[in-house]
């Protein structure tokens, strides 16, 4: 564990910035509260973000860039669309794209 004064899962922190470096394998998420932005360490990233790992261990929560997406595998591939939307090839739709239809009452278009 990091110094006692640091938040959970944090290896190095500072008073105004929160966590600067997380423990291995965790993701740092830059959490915004109005004016303030502090670093927190998470085992998996919050809604709308995905975890990017890199060899130096600077694993980081990065924003999904897909409309109407709650959870994503990478910037452009959604794994969970918002309620009521259909999913196809990692994107979210109001209705299945032409030529596609939902499969065995899931929200996936095939």
């Amino acid at each position: 564990e990091g110094p006692p004064s640091c938040p959970k899962g944090c290896d190095k922190c500072s008073e105004y910035n929160g966590c600067i470096k997380c423990n291995p394998k965790l993701f740092i998420f830059l959490e915004r509260n109005d004016i303030r932005q502090i670093g927190v360490c998470l085992p998996s990233c919050p809604v709308g973000y995905f975890g990017m790992r890199n060899p130096e261990g600077h694993n980081r929560c990065t924003q999904c860039k897909i409309e109407n997406c709650e959870a994503c595998f990478s910037r452009n591939f959604c794994t969970k669309c918002k309620e009521g939307l259909y999913s196809h090839s990692g994107r979210c739709y109001v209705r299945c794209p032409p030529g596609k239809h939902t499969a065995n009452n899931t929200m996936d278009c095939e």
Binding site: R53, N54, P55, F73, S74, F77, T79, S89, G90
Partner: peptide, 8 residues
């Protein structure tokens, strides 16, 4: 399967 990572 639609998304697979074997990175790192």
């Amino acid at each position: 399967l639609q998304a697979l990572t074997l990175a790192l």
